[in-house]
Simulated scan of single mutants.
Amino acid sequence: MSRTLQILSNLRSVWVLLALGVVLSIASSHFATSNNLLNVALATSVTALLAVGQTFVIILGEIDLSVGATLSFTAAITALTLRHQPTLVGMVVGIGAGAVVGLVNGVLVTKMRLPSFIATLAMMSVLAGLALQVTQGNPVGVSDYSFQNIGQAYAAGIPVPVWIMAVVFLAFGLLLARTRFGRFVYATGDNEEAARLSGVPTHTVKIAAFVLSGSLAALAGFIITARLSTAEPTAGTGLELEAIAAVIIGGTSLAGGRGDMLGTVVGALILGVIDNGLNLLNVSPFLQSVVKGLVILAAVLLDRNAAVVRGWFTRTTTTERVTS
């Protein structure tokens, strides 16, 4: 019974996504068109990339509030580098900057023993200021055609950002589910002290997760910058909350130790579908935030109730074994 509940829990977000699709298809004749669905995937790609890195961090029982500011800062650094350097150099600099931010976050959390909420909140403020400082508060134009293709080109009729999102989800999904590092992430998030005593390098695992989060934030920044041909110093403002919401809606536990990449991608798509559907239905932008907030609240409540039900059935099964 507990195994059945676990499977149903893992599929919960998928059923929600399908139900939303059916409802919006009925409510609007424009929703289920191929062009609109591609637009949903394209609009979701940035949040999805941020959510991938956030998944690793949250499974570890931590949180990264700096990803939005990291996106803004690395986008600005990349755009400024592209003025004088080739495309590849600019991208390496951007990814490197994101990795350094993640490294600093990881060190603050593990070596300095700061709560991740405080450490990344402070980093968010620092990076937001740095992004404004290096750009002097002005957008930085990008004229590099090869770089622009990251956000504007199509391959086999599908936008390149959607392909990037798919490849990243597949690669990091396999990393989380099929590698030793992934097992270490789950073990550390479930019980850090027990994992450490079992030989898991818990500090290294956490630092690596924050580095992944920072690097993927930089990649998300590439997409926004390439799509707009401009790096905005405030481009990532608020996106950290979108990414966290996607991870939570996808079923990853804020307490750590549980979650998967499929749930995260579905959670990101749910947010994208809600945004798109509300726009098609001409719902007020102010009310859209209300709806998204209620969806996040419902996801957390469902997660808590599902955990209670799983625990009840687990206790029941254990009692049956003992008394039989």
Results as ranks from 00 to 15, higher is better:
77 I>L: 15
263 G>K: 05
273 V>T: 13
200 V>S: 02
320 E>C: 04
164 I>Y: 06
55 T>S: 02
162 V>I: 03
217 A>I: 06
134 V>R: 14
21 G>R: 11
103 L>T: 02
11 L>C: 12
269 L>D: 09
318 T>F: 14
286 F>D: 13
152 Q>F: 05
164 I>N: 03
29 S>R: 15
153 A>S: 05
171 A>S: 09
262 L>C: 08
9 S>Y: 14
51 A>S: 15
168 V>P: 00
323 T>H: 14
92 V>E: 03
132 L>K: 14
310 R>S: 12
178 R>D: 11
108 L>Y: 01
158 I>W: 03
63 I>Q: 00
157 G>N: 01
196 R>G: 00
114 L>S: 08
282 N>Q: 15
243 A>H: 01
6 Q>Y: 10
182 G>I: 07
230 T>N: 15
149 N>G: 13
55 T>C: 03
162 V>A: 01
293 G>M: 04
207 I>A: 03
142 V>E: 10
262 L>R: 11
179 T>S: 03
10 N>Q: 14
245 A>T: 07
63 I>N: 00
52 V>L: 09
93 V>T: 03
249 I>G: 05
156 A>C: 06
104 V>A: 00
156 A>G: 05
314 T>I: 12
220 A>C: 10
187 A>P: 08
183 R>A: 11
197 L>N: 05
190 D>E: 10
134 V>S: 12
24 L>I: 15
216 L>K: 01
261 M>R: 04
149 N>F: 01
74 T>W: 03
142 V>H: 09
65 L>G: 04
156 A>H: 01
282 N>C: 11
35 N>I: 14
202 T>K: 00
166 A>M: 07
315 R>S: 10
273 V>P: 08
39 N>P: 13
253 S>Y: 02
295 V>R: 12
109 V>E: 03
177 A>V: 02
